[in-house]
Design a protein around this nucleic acid. Structure first.
Lengths: 346, 346
DNA sequence: CTGTTAGCGCATTCAC
DNA sequence: GTGAATGCGCTAACAG
């Protein structure tokens, strides 16, 4: 069942069938209709491999994520798939699990399948391993870390905006001892979040206590360990801002085990707004970084690059904002339960 | 950069290059070495499309899941990817979101890309839409629902084993009013779980109260709603078995909001053992259905079918057990807190 | 054991 | 506006 079979039955040449399928406008409408009729009768589907071979376009984009099992990523994958399908693209999805060897294999798989572009959503890990793709002039899109060179796009996330909102929200609730649980600091985006926290504190004159900045690893376990450290301090922090939601969830879980009630004794703020965060006990106040929007931007960046005649010399930047989303995991700092009254008293 | 370029530089024919690449044993080792040297020097990667076109083998398996954003599936996707890569296969992943239209599009995408087989991990939804694949003699593997026909494999899950263990565990803890929150009952696997619950209750002579069987939908929201219904009953159930972990998580969340403490006032058991369940408050006792194992079996089923000369007339069945995994969300039924003593007293 | 050659299914020249 | 012919990059059949 191939294009020739269709041609024979429609009594036209294969060229005409090809043109009909690709909706070349110059083809006679009657012929086109005849061809399409046969195609549907026979339930014929063009062979993508053959098309790719001759056209040089595979219509596949690679999507590299750090961990598909991390709840942050499936939303991105889903959105990316939606958009890709709308544009007749297929996805080659790989998950590196923070393992350079897997990243290497990912790159090899992408090259072998001749993807037209790759979205590298690892938030700053192992970009050096992408040399093979760069060398082959495959358009790439990163989050936070793209070099300014041709065919490289970057989604720059405005971490500061959301983090500043969170810090000011906590400050407004009379918190002064605000802790920050970072991500793995070799991760570019984790480092930037931490710096945004420090900047946000400084600009409103809040003191940054070094022992209140503890390193996590963007996992629940990391959050649990972080809380143990922070809870041991005297005095304890009254609020904790976390580098991502999984960390915040770990913090909340450990707080429960330690008998620290949230938000009464401890306010917690997350980052990402993964879907789960809404279902925490209590629902987690967090900084929203739209996964859908990241997927959208990543796809658009790749598509733009593929469609473009001449690649922009400096690559392209896309911006994404973050915003605080209030739920139930923050409250007035303990000892300020009559905060409204105190302020009147002043 | 193609096979001819390599051939020219290695001063051999393209056929020899091809043979070297494919490690045909008859090729002269010296020539092979020479060829491989050039290949690595030039960092040459064979064009998969061309290979697929001529060999008729795309080395792609389709993987259809119901919802990638459902935490149950990413583990499967990850495991499936791992195994696929080991066998030099690529995955075409699609997520149907329980939408027949998306299922249709999935099938079309699979056919267009000429996948060699498809794992349909939707647990009993919309199989009728797979006709196009069946028609094209594409091997298929299902969970629970495969018809007994050629090229169809089935992973039959022994739900009863785990559910029986759970029911007996609850019975041993003196629970008699045991509720069951089902999944969406049009889902084959959800129906089977419910029946397994009923059978497990009956066989140990425990009464099944119809109002204690409430329909959920395998989501957290469904679990929350279910608990509201069950909590309104008088007397209330003292234990709830859920058709999946997401439901159990919803139940636990709503119990918290209602001030019902788990496990003291209410025992909860889930099903699936998604990774999250271990991190619940308290850690969720659940029935383990290994996602890794499902992925493994699904891949193996497809691979077997592809490698087989003649398809088995009746298809093939693979079995997977389920087992209760004790954590912290169950306890003696309330009013039996001195259960050990009571039993001595009898 | 190696090279020559013919297609795999399709898009795209180029004549007509 | 349509058809015949060429070739995308590779494998497999055959000849040597």
């Amino acid at each position: 069942m191939d294009i020739r079979e269709i041609a024979k039955r429609a009594k036209v040449s294969t060229a005409t069938v090809s043109r009909a399928i690709n909706r070349v406008p110059t083809v006679n409408p009657n012929l086109a209709k005849r061809v399409w009729k046969i195609i549907e009768e026979l339930d014929y589907y063009p062979n993508t491999q053959a098309r790719a071979l001759v056209s040089g376009k595979t219509r596949i984009f690679g999507l590299i994520v750090s961990e598909i099992t991390n709840p942050f990523f499936p939303e991105i994958v889903q959105s990316f798939e939606d958009i890709a399908v709308q544009h007749n693209y297929e996805i080659l999805l790989t998950s590196t699990i923070h393992d350079p060897k897997r990243m290497e294999i990912s790159v090899r798989r992408m090259i072998e399948r001749r993807v037209e572009g790759v979205a590298v959503l690892t938030f700053g890990m192992e970009e050096s391993l992408l040399e093979g793709l760069r060398f082959r002039k495959v358009p790439l899109v990163f989050v936070d870390v793209a070099p300014h060179s041709p065919r490289m796009s970057n989604i720059r996330i405005n971490y500061l905006q959301g983090i500043r909102q969170a810090v000011q929200h906590l400050a407004a609730l009379r918190h002064t001892r605000i802790a920050f649980v970072t991500g793995p600091l070799q991760l570019r985006s984790a480092l930037v979040r931490k710096e945004a926290f420090q900047e946000s504190m400084q600009e409103i004159g809040l003191e940054i206590f070094p022992q209140l900045i503890v390193e996590g690893d963007h996992t629940m376990e990391g959050g649990m360990k972080a809380l143990i450290k922070l809870a041991a301090l005297d005095p304890r922090p009254t609020a904790i801002l976390c580098s991502n939601d999984m960390t915040a969830i770990g913090v909340m879980r450990e707080a429960y085990d330690c008998g620290i009630s949230i938000p009464e004794e401890l306010s917690v703020v997350g980052f990402d707004d993964i879907r789960l965060s809404e279902f925490m006990i209590p629902p987690l106040t967090t900084i929203r970084m739209s996964q859908t929007e990241i997927a959208r931007l990543a796809f658009r960046a790749l598509k733009n690059e593929v469609d473009r005649e001449e690649p922009a010399a400096e690559g392209t930047e896309y911006l994404l904002d973050t915003n605080l989303l209030l739920r139930k995991s923050t409250a007035l700092a303990p000892g300020n339960s009559h905060g409204a009254i105190s302020s009147r008293e002043i």
